[in-house]
Nucleic acid binder design. Structure first.
Length: 785
DNA sequence: CTCGGTCAGTTTTTT
DNA sequence: ACTGACCGAG
């Protein structure tokens, strides 16, 4: 116990030894957050304040959960089994499997990941004659998820001014179909679990009485629904109940998931609703050298919405942050790899080096360069194992064996390998199933003619798998599925299929590994981890959807780590490169419209900087190939926000620390590329309009003067057209006009709002009620009456 | 009706 | 480079 506390600084110790009151710990980057969390759990157990079964710990990633348990086991012998530790999604899944009846789900409900969900949305839109040009499936998906995160079912979902009620109607259809299929998307796991607790007082009470200590990591990244889930479990505000202790750890400066519904406001709400006096601030940084930390502090000071926190370190100043501007993305990659080589020669292990980028697309050039130079690297994230097509195919067969109503899985593999079941048969099937409210699988039984025989072949395969799933051990079943489905043969015949076969073999190992891990967990424990009603197959399928990431296998090899900035959160390296510091890329172009989004980008940059322990390099390219286009950009506004005194500008590769002769200063103005660059921009810091795009091939050198003129002209013209469109209302309909819509029938225009692209008609339809329709979209569907 | 080939548009980040 | 749409052959 003393060992446990002695190694902590006063603030950390204060946090760890808190009583049962709820608390908020503001833990800056590198301030020992994970340590505080695990020490807190160890403290609760060692001081007999809690039994393991009273502890509920929520982490942001599965990896963090695993790490917490590993660290805890090294601190003390602990009955890990009895605690509930995992992500919100993992814990909700666990709860739903246990109470699936009360939650209104079949025992074998499927989990749809992001891409499954997107195809489901597309499918439903198609089946209902809604074109994906009219409403982008991705936007519909976002809308549905946003609604669920707000706790809203389709009937309560908001109508959007621009799109009328169309999104809500799709959501409604989606909701019904998922219930029929017995499938849950990610957000549904949370919402259903929340509703389960809300609607079943006895179940809620059971968990409230059990989890006296609730710990939450990365609290700044929780969404509103997750907060409400926690609030419910804590029992706060319930008369006559002593609320459970909620120990929330977070850092508002590292909130980078707002795009996914994360709500930093949860921190303020938590302080208010749980009556937290003053949060405990952990500001001493044990990770980075002074210059790196000062750069991070300087940058984040530009954000307005902050709880306020300033990191400090006892470590020395260290080296300045190096900034290197390359003429092109290829040169940038070459510079990075050269520098990696230099550090490696001086003794830094490859795995202590990380290359960070804003978007996945940037990894390609870097990978090419690493490959060319023969330096080991491993890409973190990117395409995950369980996201690979061949793996998803095999998993889909298993999902069908588990739950034949899983239409997503059905559609993926019904004709894979090809069995002569084409688009027409499937369309007929979808219509029949839709009209009769049955699954596609069940609809097969009603097929007629030639299609019937072909569908029967598929059905026979699934029926066979259904029998075998209970007979065979999991890994044997995986093998059997790959064989029986015909996938094995298909990839054997494919000249490029060997890697895919290899991956399928790895799926078998993954299954073996999964079963073994569960067995070890259960060894010394009378209470099974896997809940009584979850079979190994169900567990494995959940695992495939929820833990689709974490390339753990590669972790021990000595390789340079390539990853997005998002993926780097929580990690640290001796040497870090942050690449692509160009306006439009970082901050990303889609985020430069609003200050709120821009502040999130800045936090992202803050996260990136604070990954570095000893050395940090920031690089950028004046020209870059992206999506088959060469784009020219100016330097990121974030570079100008970094304190000058912490930076050192470099130019050409081959630079060494002791040689200052090619040291380029960015100069007093702080704008533009390094002095000497043909691309220096002077004067205005207006970043909204200085990316030039031209489709076609790469230029040999910097963009010629004449091209700038022409392209600039094009942009002006476009702008002009936009403005013109805005001035001109151009509504072909006035209030009182009658019109005919192909879906909603006849109606009367009540009013028009907006102009040009934004023109919205409010129409009272004779049979479908009042709707707001965006004219730009509706015009294809309406005619005069 | 199905299949395999070609072509265009594409992506910011992820449990 | 990965997917979805389209087209002509069987």
């Amino acid at each position: 116990m003393n060992d446990l506390l002695d190694s902590l600084n006063p603030e950390q110790k204060a946090a760890v030894t808190l009583g049962e009151k709820s608390a908020l710990i503001l833990a800056g980057a590198g301030s020992g957050k994970t340590r505080v969390l695990t020490s807190r759990i160890a403290y609760l157990l060692q001081s007999d304040m809690a039994y393991p079964s009273e502890i509920l710990a929520v982490t942001f990633t599965n990896k963090a959960a695993k790490e917490m348990l590993t660290r805890l086991s090294t601190m003390m012998p602990v009955n890990v089994r009895a605690m509930w530790v995992g992500t919100f999604h993992g814990l909700c899944n666990r709860m739903l499997r246990l109470h699936h009846n009360e939650a209104g789900l079949p025992a074998s409900f499927a989990i749809l990941d992001q891409s499954d969900q997107l195809s489901a949305v597309k499918r439903i839109m198609k089946a209902n004659g809604i074109s994906d040009e009219e409403f982008k499936p991705r936007e519909v998906q976002n809308y549905i998820n946003r609604c669920k995160e707000e706790g809203l079912r389709a009937k309560d979902a908001p109508i959007n001014f621009q799109r009328g009620s169309a999104f809500r109607e799709i959501y409604d259809l989606y909701e019904k179909i998922l219930i029929r299929e017995g499938a849950c998307d990610f957000a549904e796991l949370l919402l259903r679990s929340y509703e389960l607790l809300k609607n079943h007082p006895l179940i809620l009470e059971h968990y409230q009485n059990r989890f006296h200590f609730i710990l939450i990591d990365e609290f700044q990244d929780t969404n509103k629904l997750q907060y409400r889930w926690i609030k419910l479990l804590s029992g706060i505000g319930e008369p006559g109940r002593r609320p459970n202790s909620v120990f929330a750890v977070g850092d508002d400066d590292q909130s980078i998931y707002a795009f996914r519904g994360a709500n930093v406001g949860n921190m303020q709400d938590f302080v208010r609703e749980f009556k937290i006096g003053e949060p405990i601030r952990l500001e001493q940084n044990y990770r980075s050298q002074g210059n790196i930390l000062d750069a991070a502090n300087g940058l984040i000071a530009n954000n307005s919405q902050r709880l306020g926190k300033k990191l400090w370190t006892e470590a020395g100043e260290g080296d300045k942050v190096r900034v290197y501007s390359a003429p092109s993305d290829v040169d940038e990659a070459a510079y990075v790899v050269d520098t990696v080589k230099e550090y490696a020669d001086l003794g830094t292990p490859y795995k202590e080096m990380a290359i960070l980028y804003r978007s996945n697309a940037q990894s390609r050039v870097l990978e090419a360069e690493f490959t060319r130079r023969g330096i080991p690297y491993s890409v973190y994230g990117g395409l995950r194992f369980f996201d690979r097509a061949e793996i998803k195919n095999a998993i889909s067969y298993m999902r069908l064996a588990e739950n034949t109503a899983d239409d997503s899985a059905f559609l993926r593999v019904v004709n894979l390998p090809a069995r002569g079941i084409g688009a027409k048969t499937i369309e007929t099937l979808i219509n029949f199933a839709g009209d009769n409210g049955i699954s596609l699988y069940d609809a097969c039984g009603y097929a007629k003619g030639a299609a019937a025989a072909k569908l029967e072949v598929f059905r026979a395969i699934i029926e066979d798998l259904r029998e075998k799933k209970d007979e065979l051990p999991l890994s044997k079943f995986v093998d059997y599925t790959v064989e029986k489905s015909g996938l094995k043969e298909m990839y054997e015949l494919d000249p490029n299929g060997s890697e895919r076969l290899e991956n399928l073999r790895e799926l078998t190992s993954a299954a073996t590994g999964y079963v073994d891990a569960e067995a070890i967990d259960e060894e010394d424990e009378e209470e099974s981890v896997r809940d009584e009603n979850m079979t190994a197959l169900q567990g494995f399928l959940s695992h495939a959807s929820l833990e689709a990431g974490e390339n753990q296998a590669k972790a021990d090899q000595d390789a340079v780590q390539l990853m997005t900035v998002h993926a780097s959160k929580g990690l640290e390296f001796n040497l870090v490169f942050i690449t692509g510091l160009e306006d439009g890329l970082f901050p990303h172009g889609n985020s430069m419209g609003s200050n709120k989004d821009l502040e999130e980008e800045r936090r992202l940059m803050y996260v990136a900087i604070t990954r570095a322990r000893k050395n940090l390099y920031i690089t950028l390219a004046e020209r870059r190939m992206l999506h088959g286009t060469t784009r020219y950009s100016s330097q990121s506004m974030f570079l100008r926000e970094l304190p000058e005194e912490n930076l050192k500008w470099l130019s050409k590769p081959g630079y060494t620390d002791s040689d200052d002769s090619d040291d380029y200063s960015s100069g007093g103005s702080g704008y533009g590329f390094a002095r000497g660059s043909k691309f220096s921009r002077r004067g205005s810091s207006d970043w909204s309009n200085n990316n030039y795009r031209e489709s076609g091939r790469t230029y040999n050198s910097n963009m010629p003067e004449w091209a700038k003129g022409i392209l600039g002209g094009k942009l002006e013209k476009q702008q002009e057209n936009k403005i013109r469109a805005k001035i001109d209302n151009g509504s072909p309909y006035k209030s009182g006009d009658r019109l005919l819509h192909e879906k909603f029938g006849a109606g009367t225009v009540l009013s028009t709002k907006g102009v040009g692209e934004e023109l919205v008609l409010q129409i009272k339809f004779d049979r479908s009620g009042v709707k707001d329709l965006l004219y730009r979209i509706a015009k294809k569907k309406i005619s005069d009456l």
